[in-house]
Design a protein around this nucleic acid. Structure first.
Lengths: 226, 226
DNA sequence: GTCTATAATGGGATAGAC
DNA sequence: GTCTATCCCATTATAGAC
């Protein structure tokens, strides 16, 4: 049986290996994101990640020479995925109400489909973004500022009620992300093992209602809105 | 000079020491909460906490025999402080709008004054509440359920618009807590070193506006609210 | 209660054979 | 690229003198 291998062509080998390497790195990062989310950066051992990914610790370190490199790759992937879904949502001349509804839906979808991604990112920010602050500054902040400008344009065009656009966006983020980050606590309150699709639908309705109600108030009248 | 000490009374010594011990433990926990918030559970070394608290590592372990014991004490203190501020807010027969405004204000105040407390708690929940889930179940969930019942009573009494009370509460939590947990990212967006009192005032206005607008919608009319 | 000394473990990282 | 073996360091925790 070994004789069949004698004249194997070595030509595509290199390319195949490169492709495999990219794929393997992506698989390792996909496993790592869960471990980092559950255990934190220091609580994560590369041995655990390697085991989950089905290779040896030393072999993992061939692909990611240091733990930090793996962590940065994980955060890079998280940000790539998130930006892919969020970019250009506020582009075009759609109705503000539809844009906001779509925005909330997209963020909730991310929380439901990629809870570990959201959690790793959250833990990094909560602990001061010491390792990833520069990337957030370079990649996230500009996008956020653009979204805020869109909101403010809507306000100056009289298409939505006057409201602090920055804090409105903070509020939308907070409400949608919490369904990934704090789902453990929510599940306890709702008395389930984990959140269901219906919970996310209920959440969407409440959040969209709140956001649309906030931008619909015609004016700060009556001295009622504080 | 040493002679003056010869006849020192030993009577109150025991009590003094007990009081000092309580005080010292509280001081250690107060330092620990910052370190746990910045470094995570595994990232925190008791040596660092001891240094911040001004005693030796071994001495700290006289008061807290294990790292877990210190961590649990920190979370206990966080919860005590939080429950102290939050309890009985929804009691009495005040106007729903005033109760909600006060609730939001109290939560934001906690985020501003005890950001580390909020962050330690958040990290524990994000990583699945593996160590503190039972306490959350016993001490937090009942209080939350009570708040939800108050909301639902308001709805059935026609004092506020019909809305999913559970998710409304989740939304309020998320929006207010995020000003502690994600302040690092917010500061980057706002281009400051840290959030200011004015930022919290702006946040309060937006959050209160959103909540009050959401409970003011008379009915789900027009097929507009989805 | 506070100190010195030390055990014991785990984990990140490197070296080198195959 | 994958394996075995190993180094080195940080850290939790304990023992025991004072």
């Amino acid at each position: 049986m070994p004789t069949a291998k004698l004249n194997a062509e070595p030509a595509p080998k290199i390319k195949r290996r490169v492709l495999n390497r990219d794929k393997l790195e992506a698989e390792i990062a996909a496993e790592a994101v869960r471990v980092f989310a559950e255990c934190g950066y220091e609580g994560t051992s590369i041995a655990t990640v390697a085991e989950n990914a089905g290779l040896s610790k030393q072999n993992l370190m061939y692909y990611f020479p240091t733990k930090q490199a793996l962590y940065q790759r994980v955060l890079d992937d998280v940000l790539d995925e998130w930006l892919d879904r969020m970019e250009n949502l506020a582009a075009g001349d759609q109705e503000p109400r539809e844009v906001l509804r779509t925005y909330v839906q997209a963020k909730l979808k991310f929380s439901r489909e990629q809870p570990w991604a959201s959690r790793v990112y959250a833990m990094e920010v909560i602990s001061g973004a010491q390792l990833y602050g520069a990337q957030i500054q370079n990649r996230v902040v500009p996008l956020v500022r653009k979204d805020i400008e869109v909101f403010e344009k809507w306000i100056s065009d009289g298409r939505i009620a006057p409201i602090n656009a920055t804090h409105l966006l903070f509020a939308i983020w907070a409400m949608t992300q919490s369904y990934a980050d704090f789902s453990a606590q929510m599940a306890l309150v709702l008395n389930r093992k984990q959140l269901t699709k219906k919970d996310f639908d209920d959440a969407e309705k409440v959040i969209v209602d709140m956001v649309l109600a906030a931008i619909s108030v015609p004016q700060p009248v009556c001295g009622d809105a504080r």
